[in-house]
């Protein structure tokens, strides 16, 4: 292989005329982080709502929840991004569609919504399984004390469920960060997009993607470490099964 290594490429000026390649990668990292953080917030909120709906005694709520999960879980993330970005503006009334298309950072908002809803379907399934894994008596005891169903969820069922789910939720957060790379297809200049741009202009493909790989690994190791800390803080004295469970990726 005849490849000309050049690690000092990171300090050379990128084609935008103001930033070094290193600075563009950092900008991309920032977009990756903010996109993932917003998307995961949406995923947690919607995932929790849908997961709870699927464990209520109401059949309409259970059906609504299953439909939601079926739609968002069974269509590839890439297709969902395209649908939100290219198809949705055409289906809306003309004025609204035009406004969406001209929105600055439209690819960011679209990526957040698409990634957030896609991940929310996965999280909904885990929340559902987590709630159902609690002893049925916990729900009965809450109701017997006079709590309403929403109170039982808010004070008893969900606090336990989130604790049990911390390890799998960590995996979902890591998946969200990794899946945010798909947003480059709708023009979001996140980390992978920046690495690709660097490779296209400088032809230093190995350096560019080595840098991106290392940055992804560092981010995800930091996230894993932080979530371990959270798990440790939330450990319940005397309750088995909460002592530093292994985190799968």
């Amino acid at each position: 292989m005849n490849y000309h290594w050049n690690w000092s490429i990171f300090w050379e000026l990128s084609p935008d005329g103001t930033h070094t390649y290193f600075a563009t990668l950092m900008l991309g990292t920032a977009w990756t982080l903010i996109t993932s953080a917003c998307a995961f917030t949406i995923a947690l909120v919607f995932g929790s709502i849908v997961g709870v709906l699927r464990t209520t005694p109401y059949s309409w709520a259970m059906r609504l929840g299953s439909l939601y999960v079926d739609v968002f879980r069974n269509v590839p993330l890439l297709v969902q991004m395209f649908l939100w970005y290219f198809v949705l503006p055409e289906l809306l009334p003309q004025a609204l569609g035009d406004w969406l298309k001209q929105l600055s950072d439209a690819s960011f908002y679209t990526a957040v919504v698409a990634l957030g809803l896609y991940m929310s379907a996965r999280i909904a399934e885990q929340i559902r399984a987590g709630i159902l894994s609690l002893p049925r008596g916990q729900r009965l005891a809450s109701l017997a004390l006079g709590m309403t169903l929403p109170q039982a969820y808010a004070y008893v069922l969900l606090p336990m469920t989130y604790r049990i789910l911390l390890p799998p939720l960590t995996s979902e957060l890591l998946n969200t960060i990794k899946n945010s790379a798909v947003a480059l297809t709708i023009g979001l200049m996140e980390l992978t997009a920046r690495a690709r741009a660097m490779q296209e202009f400088s032809f230093q493909v190995f350096e560019a993607f080595t840098a991106a790989t290392i940055i992804y690994i560092v981010i995800n190791m930091l996230v894993t470490f932080a979530m371990r800390m959270v798990e440790r803080r939330l450990t319940i004295p005397g309750y088995l099964g909460f002592k530093a469970p292994a985190v799968g990726h």
Partner: peptide, 10 residues
């Protein structure tokens, strides 16, 4: 009062 106590563990 339940057979398995059902205190809230958290």
């Amino acid at each position: 009062v339940f057979q398995h106590f059902e205190l809230f563990p958290h």
